[in-house]
């Protein structure tokens, strides 16, 4: 099928840069196809920025990159009105946010004030500067990267803001084989020239969107989804369960995943595939539970029965 081919070639293109990370690349694409913002979290030097740049290139979107630092101000992102002496009036200089894809590097290194400036933009696709609301170009994606919260010099994103990211991905260390390949490439000096090309056009994005909207989610599947959500709210291991928005995100992503794999209906495997990326940053373990969000997702995967109620 044509769609499948398009997606596969996009994955291949990104995979040529970020070796051995196909599942993460697919999930990242799934997130963008579902019109959600993506958060990539891992230690420095794991390829977060590489991935986000490659994604931007593959989608062929206009993109801007903001390196978040601790002294970054909201105006630096949103834009500012400057007095034009020639016209004797203020004119608005749009900030880097006025783009289709915003790459927010190390988002948790900046202050909460600046972080929250992103909020309205991410939620509503518009920004309000000096009392005037301006809409952002469509589509509008944010791909943010951040270091693990425990690292020094970070301002953890508040839950409300984490919830606005449809997915959070962790890249993890590369497979030894992929790493070896990476060494060899660097050695032969082949890496630099390999700039990714656009593989998905805006029209194709729209086609995918239509395909996703046609994906069927059966009663059985919705039951399973509800069981998952109920489990996070009832089990003592969870301090904060999945919000209704989180539950909807899970459904959207599962549908997108199904569409990406050329199916017209969702199967439980789809839910389980997207579950870690969609849920782990929305779940808060209770004080007595030793594990983190990932452990909670694992618990969820294992404990909630796929069949029967």
């Amino acid at each position: 099928m044509q769609l499948q081919g398009v997606i596969d070639s996009a994955v291949e293109e990104v995979g040529g840069i970020l070796l051995g990370k196909e599942p993460q690349i697919r999930l990242a694409l799934c997130c963008l196809f579902a019109r959600g913002h993506l958060l990539i979290e891992d230690l420095p030097g794991m390829g977060k920025t590489t991935l986000s740049h490659a994604l931007a290139a593959v989608l062929g979107l206009s993109w801007k990159r903001v390196q978040f630092t601790s002294d970054l101000l909201p105006a630096d992102i949103l834009g500012v009105s400057v007095y034009d002496a020639k016209d004797a009036s203020f004119s608005f200089h749009p900030g880097p946010i006025f783009t289709q894809l915003l790459l927010a590097d190390e988002i948790n290194r900046t202050t909460p004030r600046t972080q929250s400036a992103l909020l309205e933009a991410m939620a509503e696709g518009q920004v309000t500067v000096e009392g005037e609301t301006r809409s952002l170009p469509a589509p509008f994606f944010v791909i943010a990267t951040q270091n693990p919260v425990s690292q020094s010099g970070t301002y953890p994103l508040p839950e409300s803001q984490l919830d606005r990211f449809l997915m959070r991905l962790e890249l993890g260390y590369p497979h030894p084989r992929a790493e070896r390949q990476m060494f060899e490439r660097r050695h032969s000096g082949a890496l630099a020239i390999n700039n990714p090309q656009q593989r998905i056009t805006l029209e194709q994005l729209e086609i995918i969107r239509v395909a996703v909207s046609k994906v069927h989610a059966s009663e059985n599947l919705l039951d399973y989804l509800q069981r998952l959500v109920a489990f996070t709210r009832q089990s003592p291991e969870f301090e904060v369960g999945l919000s209704p928005r989180g539950a909807l995100a899970l459904l959207d992503c599962a549908k997108t995943w199904a569409a990406m794999h050329n199916r017209t209906h969702v199967v439980p495997e789809d839910v389980q595939m997207v579950l870690p990326a969609v849920a782990s940053h929305r779940l808060v373990p209770s004080g007595d539970y030793a594990g983190d969000g990932n452990a909670l997702v694992d618990l969820l995967q294992r404990k909630v029965d796929v069949i029967g109620s």
């Binding site: 199967v267 439980p268 495997e269 389980q272 969820l300 995967q301 294992r302 404990k303 909630v304 029965d305 796929v306 069949i307």
Partner: peptide, 9 residues
């Protein structure tokens, strides 16, 4: 079948 195991798995 483990609870979390889908029919496919």
């Amino acid at each position: 079948r483990a609870p979390g195991e889908t029919p496919g798995q």
